[in-house]
Every structure is written in C-alpha cells, then in structure tokens.
Amino acid sequence: MITAEQKPLDEIKNLLGNEEKVLVVGCGTCVTVCFAGGDREAQLLASSLRMTTKLDGHPMEVSDVTVQRQCEWEYLDEIEDEIMEADVVLSIACGIGVQAIAEHFPECWVVPGLNTTFLGLPTEQGIWEERCMACGNCVLGVTGGICPIARCSKSLLNGPCGGSEDGHCEIDADVPCAWQLIYDRLAGKDQLDLILEIDPPKDWSTAHDGGPRKIVREDLQLETEES
C-alpha cells in the first residue's frame, strides 16, 4: 500500500492561509489502513483545526468528508458540491489524491495534509516499512522476493557493499541490510547461483528516470466512435 504521515499542524495551518471555509477530504483506501488520512483522521483534523483557529482568533469553518478512493474520478464526483463550496480543500489522501482533486476540479484550491512516504507494508502494529520503489522492471525473481532497489540504501544489484554488518545496513543499526536478507534467503533455498552472475547496469528508463510513466491498455480502452 501507499503509506503516509500527517504534516505538522502548523504547516497545515500555513498552507490554509487566511481562508474561511475549509473542507478536509479523507480517503478510504491506503491512508485509512495506515491511520493517516481516513475518516477518523479527517474528523480529528477538522476538529483540531476548528479549535486551534478559534484560539488563534481567526476561526475557520472546517467540515470533513471521506470518499472511498480519492484517486478515481467517480468517487470525487460524489463530493463535487462540498468541494465547490469550500475556499480551500485540505486533502489527506496520498499525493495522488491531492492531484486528482486539483485535476478534476480546476477551480478549486487544494493543499496536502499528508506527506506521502513510500510503498510498503505494516510489519507490526504501528510500524510500516518500505518495500517497493515502482522501478518498472521487477527483479524480485532473482533476489528471492526481497527488493534490492527499495531495501538496499544504495539500490545495489550485485551484492552487499562493504558496510553490511551483523545483518544491518551501514546507515543505521535499525535498518536491515537487504543483501544480507537476500543472501540468507537464497542460501536457504540453495539458489545462490542466481546472484553469482554479474547483473548488468539496470535500465532505469522504466523507472521515473525515463520521465513520468503511463500505462495504456488498449484491450481495456473504451471503443472509439469510428469502430
């Protein structure tokens, strides 16, 4: 899932400026699961904004609404009226949700209430860890299902750097070394051969380095008029 964390309240207040009517828009998908921008967080944020702006002597009228998925037009259509009434929309979806609102409602001013952090998973209650950087050319098949792009601090493809120690990465004793994990897993499965060959320079053009990416699935596109 996409994980995110709420921005500090002061930063959010700065982003809202001196507007009067604020609509907080939550999202019912990834950011709900990571407790950053779901219905509950939207309500909480709305009420703390009401409270602090009142204390500041510039009370804002803050309401909230949560849609199932902020990254799809059809769910945004459901809240068109609320969006149009607001002076400013505070989206607490991931960056995609914020942009979806800006794109779908060009007249509206939308600001982000979250910092979108990574693609990851909850490894224990209250802990999320990065797992994928959407490189566009997945190598998990040779690395035993452990991603060296996202989980190695240097995205190395040919094995561990000299900084790997006691299972952790040189950058922090709390960060596991991806290549230690890969090595252990492949050794356990008698598959070390997979990493003995030299992996050539990666084609990063499928990642963001190739420019903003787009997927076109003709089989799924709606038929055009002429056909």
Binding site: G159, P160, C161, G163, Q180, Y183, D184, L192
Partner: peptide
Amino acid sequence: ADPIDFRPYR
C-alpha cells in the same frame, strides 16, 4: 564484512 561467506564470491 557481512555476509562473510559471500565475500570471496563478490
């Protein structure tokens, strides 16, 4: 450096 067994292979 760790994993020490991999070092000659690297």
